[in-house]
């Protein structure tokens, strides 16, 4: 029997400090997540300097909790992995410095992981991945369609030209009086409302796989401002349903366009917005409607947001390839697949 691989992984790219212990890239022995949402809610969004300060406060606590919960010690570990981008530079640096220190102190190999790859490999805890597979990455920072042709081999097929989808949710959420992060509440309101406002579906006619959400966001804001000026009462649930209706049309249009060009056996959805119930329902319906023989995979809710477990899943692939980083590793805030 082959020896198990235990990886300690770090994630600190935005406002979650997370440390996990992952066995063979498949099994979560621990996945500690310290979230700063309540802090940033004071300011209506993530404040980078505040986020960095919180990471320093949490980092060793998370390390020790991860070891305790996994019931392992440093001598059981085979490698240390860390998100090195994309993300907020000040936030990334705390995870990177801590991971490099643990790797150095215990003489363990260091693995630098792309945060986006981590989101995609959250699915590794749910199913056996079959290559090639398609991935839809939807979060507050990213909206991408990525074809994964082999373990750790990514091809970005489509990207957002302006706002990320989660960012659009937060911005229109503010108009609806919902504090950041607004996604969950808008999703709930949308479930109660009707798509009556006919907001624009940007770029759905265009024969490419890119997204745009700024036009939708502007249309939404203009509609609400106009109503305010003429003292017209708008139904907030209908507004939410109309916004989400447009978002889902755009996401599903581009995703299935990509799937038509690259037929695969699995569609993996990852990132914070993959927790959206409307999106889960819509993609399932579309697959059924098209009679596609394709597995639709969503991570469990705990693994939709940022977490270190997903970094450990991706790190295992790099570990197997011997793809290790050095102690001079730096953050790469605007890292993308095509740059590696």
């Amino acid at each position: 029997m082959e020896k198990d691989t235990l990886i300690m992984s770090f994630e600190s790219s935005c406002d979650e400090t997370s440390v996990a212990i992952i066995k063979n890239g498949k099994e979560i022995l621990s996945n500690i997540i310290a979230t700063q949402i309540k802090s940033h809610q004071r300011f209506g969004g993530v404040v980078p300097e505040v986020a960095s300060r919180h990471h320093v406060e949490e980092v060793t606590r998370c390390i020790n909790m991860a070891l305790d919960e996994a019931k392992v010690g440093y001598s059981d570990l085979d490698a240390v992995a860390v998100t090195y981008g994309p993300g907020l530079v000040g936030s990334l640096l705390i995870g990177i410095m801590a991971a490099k220190t643990v790797a150095f102190a215990h003489n363990l190999p260091l693995i630098k992981v792309n945060h986006l790859a981590g989101h995609i490999y959250s699915a590794n805890f749910v199913t056996d991945l079959q290559y090639p597979f398609m991935s839809l990455l939807v979060s507050g920072g990213h909206t991408e369609i990525v074809l994964v042709t082999a373990p750790g081999v990514f091809h970005t097929l489509g990207d957002t030209r302006d706002d990320a989808v989660g960012e659009a949710y937060d911005k229109i959420g503010r108009i609806l009086g919902i504090n950041y992060p607004a996604g969950k509440k808008v999703d709930q309101m949308a479930a109660k409302g009707k798509d009556t406002f006919n907001f624009p579906r940007a770029m759905v006619q265009e024969d490419n796989l890119d997204f745009s959400f700024s036009g939708l966001k502007s249309a939404f804001i203009n509609r609400v401002h106009h109503a305010d000026q003429v003292h017209e009462q708008l139904n907030k649930d209908d507004l939410a349903a109309s916004f989400q209706g447009a978002v889902l049309d755009i996401l599903s249009n581009k995703t299935f366009r990509a799937l038509k060009q690259h037929p695969v056996k699995q569609l993996i959805v990852g990132g914070g917005v993959s927790a959206n119930q409307g999106l889960r329902k819509r993609l399932a319906e579309e697959i059924e409607k098209r009679h596609m023989d394709m597995e639709l995979v969503f991570p469990p809710l705990r693994l939709c947001g940022d977490n270190a477990a997903m970094i450990g899943a991706m790190a295992q692939i790099q570990y197997d390839k011997g793809d290790f980083a050095k102690l001079d590793l730096n953050a790469d805030p605007s890292l993308d697949f095509d740059m590696e």
Partner: peptide, 15 residues
């Protein structure tokens, strides 16, 4: 200061 403090506290804690 965050860089040095993070390395220092992690090193002291882990060893």
């Amino acid at each position: 200061v965050r860089i040095a403090v993070t390395v220092a506290k992690t090193l002291a804690d882990t060893l």
